[in-house]
Amino acid sequence: MQAGLEQYLVVSAVLFAIGLLGVIMRRNLLVIYMSLELMLNSANLALVAFSRFSPDPKNSLDGQVLVFFIITVAAAEVAVGLALIVALFRKRQSAHVEDLTSLKL
């Protein structure tokens, strides 16, 4: 079967689902963060596929520029998030979501 836009989008959707499953299932903050990265990457794959299969060659690179910005924002987000996790670990000695329930009523 020829690899068209449909195949790429299915791969992206399944990868997004894997990331979502990780966020729901895993209880370790670091692994939840990695699953978030998987979800961001699946969105990037969908954007690049749409850009490649766009019917208008003149503006088709806009999607790739958007992916470039997403990668930048994701890098900044990872830096801030990991700093938060380290600060939290210093206070609580745990990176486990079930130990972080002090806001619970």
Binding site: E6, L9, P55, D56, S60
Partner: peptide
């Protein structure tokens, strides 16, 4: 969610020829 995604993607009649730059 996967079922919804895959149904939406396969039913949309997407292009199979790559024309982007």
């Amino acid at each position: 969610i996967v079922t919804i995604f895959v149904k939406a993607i396969t039913g949309a009649g997407l292009p199979a020829t790559a024309a982007g730059a």
